[in-house]
Amino acid sequence: MTQPPSLESLISSSGASFRLLTDSERQASLDAFLKPWHPRHDVWVFGYGSLVWRPEFDFLEQRHARVNGYHRSLCLWSRINRGTPERPGLVFGLDVGGSCRGMAYRIASHQVQETMQELWKREMPSGAYIPKWLNCHTREGAISALVFTMDRSKDAYVRGLSKEQLVDIVQGARGTYGPCSEYILETAQALELAGIRDRKLQTLVAQLRDKPPSTVQGSQP
């Protein structure tokens, strides 16, 4: 039986070809996404991670929403915000399969361009997500929203972590925005306050609180 890769090998290989998008590459991505958008139409944005508790943009309306075909998962290496290239953390992406409940925000048409510019700087610094227009279900009816889904072809994508490895990574990583564990706890709290239940996330939170932090041999604290 094949043994899973060690935590040390996962971390050492996580930054294989990491680089940030140039301004022109990021703009090209945004332009391609907004091509079907009509300038007079408002735009919905679906949040499932930090956008639930820190949207950082103005919106006209907020709704509970569910997207099918994807689930919330700690499947994205964070090498700046919640970790470093030497000791990356993990942040949420939408991986294929299942469904995900989150919050949808309606952006006024006249603010779409400015808001999207800032969102792309925040969510697409390395192009690890594939932004899509997806149908989201809300109590008030279906909407089409911007959803940042995980790009499985990128080195930033990670899967197959054991529960122990997941906890060790989250506890040991810290980036420019603070500890990775803080990000997890903030997201869990925001979802709970919004009445959104995520059993896997709640289980992880319990494990983080029960297990004392450990360090990885040869990595930075």
Score class of each variant (00 low, 15 high):
P131Y: 02
M150K: 00
K163C: 00
H71F: 01
Q207Y: 10
L208H: 13
Y105I: 02
L208R: 12
R72C: 03
L20F: 10
G47F: 01
N68I: 00
A190G: 14
L34H: 13
V216Q: 12
R209H: 13
T176R: 15
W44N: 11
Q217E: 11
Y70T: 03
Y157I: 01
P4Q: 08
R66C: 05
S78D: 08
S29Y: 01
K132H: 14
A156D: 07
A156N: 07
R54M: 07
S214H: 14
A16R: 14
E164Y: 00
P213R: 07
R139M: 08
V112E: 09
G15N: 15
P213Q: 07
Q111E: 07
E25N: 10
G49S: 13
Q202P: 02
T215M: 07
C75G: 05
S99N: 12
L30G: 00
P131Q: 06
L166Q: 14
R19N: 08
A128Q: 14
E186F: 04
G47L: 01
A206P: 03
T22Q: 08
Y70W: 14
D42M: 05
P5R: 11
R152K: 11
Q111P: 04
A173G: 06
K154W: 02
T84R: 12
I107S: 10
M116I: 04
S219I: 07
T187I: 03
L208Y: 11
V43Q: 11
V167A: 06
S181W: 04
L204S: 05
K211D: 00
W120E: 09
D151C: 03
R72D: 03
G102F: 05
P213D: 02
G195S: 08
E61Q: 15
S99T: 07
M124T: 06
L20V: 07
D42I: 04
N135S: 13
Q171N: 12
A28E: 13
L20M: 09
W44H: 11
R101P: 02
Q3H: 09
I11R: 14
V52D: 05
Q202R: 10
G218L: 00
L51G: 05
L166G: 01
S144D: 13
S126N: 09
G178E: 06
Y129C: 04
D31R: 12
W37G: 08
V167Q: 09
F33A: 10
W53H: 00
G47A: 15
S50R: 08
L21W: 09
A188W: 08
S162Y: 10
G127C: 10
S17A: 11
S6E: 05
L20R: 11
L60C: 11
L90M: 09
G175D: 09
M103T: 14
R63E: 04
D210Y: 01
